[in-house]
Amino acid sequence: MGRKPGFTDEQVFVWLSEHLAQAPGVTVQQVSKGTGVSVGSLYHRYGSMEGLLAEAWIWAQDHFSRLIVPLLKADGERAATRAALEVLNFVNANKAAATLLFLVPERYLVRPGLDLSIMDRVAEARDLLASSISDFASRINHIAETVELAVLQLPASLAEKYLPHGTIPAQAELYVRKTCRMILSNPLEIEEVEHA
């Protein structure tokens, strides 16, 4: 069987998201067979299976952050609600990236022992989203955990229900809109979060 002479990261990551949605583990040989990319090409590009998985997480997180971070630069509860609704749109429009972020546990993708340069990129991606949430929360006088619950965790729970093959129904927007507003109108107190 001939192997693809060239391939894109996205082709590999999309296949990986579909596979990991069905089974928690994967080998380089399975990726090679599933994508038609030689084992040697995969090792050449990603260095290791752990490197490939981490690059898939970074790719998904970058797609997500490019959408959500700009929305969190606005102020007010309406901006938070808009961001939460965009998470739903992201899930429906970017199923592969959403599957890697919301359905596959991060610990399967980002494992100990990664190359330091990859770990730095993972940390940067995590920090970008966390600092955006924290900055937004501080501007609207909430704690970051409340904003994360309203903007990310609520729609992410819907993603877990419908991914990898389903589409979040349009009426879910109404539930997200109402619940996001309710969470932000009745924020957790810092003491409640610390003792939870």
Rank of each mutant, 00 (worst) to 15 (best):
G2N: 12
I118G: 04
Q29I: 10
V122Y: 09
R139A: 04
A137N: 09
Q22M: 11
V31I: 13
G36H: 07
V193C: 07
T146W: 02
T167W: 08
V26L: 03
T99Y: 03
F7A: 15
L67V: 09
A123F: 07
Q22E: 14
H44I: 04
W57M: 08
E192L: 14
R78A: 12
H142D: 08
S132W: 04
V110W: 02
F102Y: 07
F13H: 00
R45D: 09
L114Y: 02
H165I: 04
A97K: 00
F7M: 14
H142V: 06
R177A: 05
A79Y: 03
S48R: 04
P187C: 13
L16Q: 00
D127W: 07
D115V: 09
G113M: 07
A96N: 01
V91I: 15
P105K: 05
A79K: 03
L129Q: 15
K4G: 06
T27K: 04
P24H: 13
A159P: 03
A84N: 06
G113Q: 01
A144P: 13
L67N: 05
E10A: 14
L129S: 09
L184H: 01
H19K: 14
M49K: 15
L85F: 06
Q11G: 11
A170Q: 14
N89T: 11
A196Q: 10
G51E: 07
L152N: 07
A98R: 02
F90H: 05
A144C: 07
D135V: 06
E10G: 08
H195W: 10
A74R: 14
Y46D: 06
F136S: 06
P155F: 00
V110K: 04
H63G: 12
P105F: 11
W15T: 04
L100P: 00
L52M: 11
M119C: 05
A172P: 01
V31F: 02
V26R: 00
E192F: 09
A84R: 02
D75L: 10
G34P: 03
Y43K: 13
P24C: 14
R121Y: 04
V193R: 01
F64E: 10
V37H: 03
L154C: 11
G40F: 05
H195F: 13
T27F: 08
T179M: 14
R111Y: 02
Y43T: 10
E192C: 10
R66A: 15
V31L: 08
L158K: 01
Y162E: 05
Q61C: 08
G76S: 10
R3F: 14
P112G: 09
G25L: 14
G25C: 07
Q30F: 03
Q29H: 10
K73I: 09
A137E: 08
D115N: 13
V176S: 03
S17N: 03
E50P: 01
Y162S: 07
R177I: 02
L188N: 01
L53S: 01
